[in-house]
Simulated scan of single mutants.
Amino acid sequence: MLVFRRVAAVMVVADDPDVSARWWADVLGVTVHRDVAPHGAVYAWIELGGVEYGFHPADDERNPRGASPVVYWAVEGDLEQALESLLAVGCTRHRGPLDVRPGRRIAQIVDPFGTVIGIEGR
């Protein structure tokens, strides 16, 4: 029987993985890690809460733009404050905030690189 335990990694397709990873690292105060393939492509990632959040080079054949899942990050404190912080550093509103059940709200933003990110909180 297949058992999922937790999210281990999330891959986002990006035009410039290094730039995307550095931007998110600056916003979240974490370190960027990177691998460079023999052909020069960069896979860059950050780690937060035990999850690898990776930025993979866009490839129209195998990893087209827009193929990324929407990942929801839990935020500490008030959802509106987190949303305003993200808007202040260059994100735009995509959806919400929405009340999905008592005590749980969600919103989606688009980062400066076109990736839709979900946030959830109070």
Rank of each mutant, 00 (worst) to 15 (best):
V7W: 03
V3P: 00
D59Y: 04
M1C: 01
C91T: 15
R93I: 14
V110E: 10
V75Q: 06
F113C: 00
A21Q: 05
W45C: 05
R62P: 00
I46N: 03
A44G: 02
M1G: 04
F113S: 01
I117R: 01
V10K: 02
F55K: 01
A25C: 04
F4A: 07
G90T: 08
R34E: 12
D18I: 04
G118W: 12
R122L: 12
I117T: 08
W23M: 00
V100C: 07
G118L: 08
V70D: 03
V89S: 01
V19R: 07
G50Y: 09
G50W: 13
D18G: 11
G66L: 05
A74W: 10
P57N: 03
R65D: 02
D59C: 06
A44M: 04
E120R: 09
E47V: 15
W23Y: 07
R105D: 05
V30P: 01
R34W: 04
G49Q: 08
G114D: 10
V27E: 01
D15A: 12
R104F: 12
H94D: 08
N63L: 13
V71K: 02
G118K: 07
R101H: 09
D111F: 07
A107I: 14
V27Q: 03
A82F: 04
A88W: 09
G96Q: 09
A74Y: 11
L87Y: 11
V10F: 01
D78T: 06
G54R: 03
P97E: 12
R104S: 02
G96T: 13
I117L: 15
E120Y: 13
E120G: 10
P17G: 02
V110N: 02
Y43M: 07
P64A: 14
D59L: 10
S85G: 15
H56Y: 10
G121P: 03
E80W: 12
